[in-house]
Amino acid sequence: MLKRLIQAFATPTNQVESPAAERIPLAAAVLLLEVANTDGEFHPDEQALLGELLKEHFAVSQESLDGLLKLAEETRHSSRDLHQFTREINKGFTQVEKERIIEALWQLVYVDGRLDCYEDALMRQLGSLIGLSHRQLIEAKLRVTRS
């Protein structure tokens, strides 16, 4: 499976793309890692929650979690922007599912108990890239902070 995930983002545009079921978990893992690292620190609480979010929202098995995270970190470092990853989320999820994903990202932001200005800016960008209104973004944030 990991070989196919690697090929999924390395495939030239004239070749057949990998199924969304393979591309979406990698895209999600990259976005989650980006959020977790935005404030310059990757806390153990963030790492633990990140794995749980991938399993819960993207059906990643425990057995493939470490490999996916390693691949996602490599992919994150070699990419230039987040558009290729948010595009996969946009293709594969409904509006309601996108709101749940943003909520999961907010959970990751707040797991360390604070909101960094860079995290806030990234969340606004991600909300926009996956087609959520400012209101939807804030409502997801409030659901996380109130619980």
Score class of each variant (00 low, 15 high):
1 M>N: 13
1 M>I: 10
4 R>A: 14
4 R>L: 15
4 R>Q: 13
5 L>F: 13
6 I>A: 08
6 I>C: 15
7 Q>E: 15
7 Q>R: 12
8 A>D: 15
8 A>P: 14
9 F>K: 11
11 T>L: 07
11 T>A: 13
12 P>F: 00
13 T>L: 15
13 T>Q: 12
15 Q>L: 12
16 V>Q: 13
18 S>L: 10
18 S>G: 11
22 E>A: 09
23 R>K: 11
23 R>M: 10
24 I>C: 14
24 I>Y: 11
25 P>K: 03
25 P>V: 01
27 A>G: 06
28 A>K: 06
28 A>F: 06
30 V>A: 07
30 V>Y: 05
32 L>F: 03
32 L>S: 05
35 V>D: 03
36 A>M: 05
36 A>P: 09
36 A>C: 10
37 N>Q: 15
38 T>L: 05
40 G>I: 00
41 E>Q: 15
42 F>S: 08
42 F>L: 11
43 H>Y: 02
45 D>I: 01
45 D>W: 03
45 D>K: 08
46 E>V: 00
47 Q>Y: 03
47 Q>P: 09
47 Q>I: 04
50 L>E: 01
51 G>F: 02
51 G>M: 02
52 E>R: 11
53 L>P: 13
54 L>C: 04
55 K>S: 13
57 H>A: 10
57 H>Q: 09
57 H>F: 05
59 A>K: 12
59 A>F: 10
60 V>Q: 04
60 V>D: 04
62 Q>P: 14
62 Q>D: 15
63 E>F: 06
63 E>D: 11
64 S>Q: 09
64 S>T: 10
64 S>R: 07
65 L>E: 04
66 D>T: 00
68 L>R: 00
69 L>C: 08
70 K>I: 01
70 K>C: 02
73 E>R: 05
75 T>G: 07
79 S>T: 10
84 Q>K: 09
85 F>L: 06
85 F>T: 03
87 R>P: 12
89 I>H: 01
90 N>G: 07
91 K>N: 07
92 G>V: 00
92 G>E: 03
93 F>Y: 07
94 T>S: 12
94 T>I: 02
96 V>K: 11
99 E>W: 04
101 I>L: 06
101 I>K: 03
103 E>L: 01
105 L>G: 00
106 W>I: 00
106 W>H: 07
107 Q>K: 00
107 Q>A: 00
109 V>K: 04
110 Y>P: 00
112 D>N: 01
114 R>A: 03
114 R>Y: 01
116 D>H: 04
120 D>R: 08
120 D>L: 09
120 D>N: 08
120 D>V: 05
123 M>S: 08
124 R>L: 07
127 G>I: 03
127 G>P: 08
130 I>Q: 09
130 I>R: 11
131 G>T: 05
132 L>I: 14
132 L>F: 14
133 S>T: 06
134 H>N: 15
134 H>W: 14
135 R>N: 14
136 Q>W: 08
137 L>S: 12
139 E>A: 11
140 A>D: 08
141 K>V: 10
141 K>D: 13
141 K>G: 10
143 R>E: 11
144 V>P: 15
145 T>D: 09
145 T>Q: 09
145 T>K: 09
147 S>R: 14
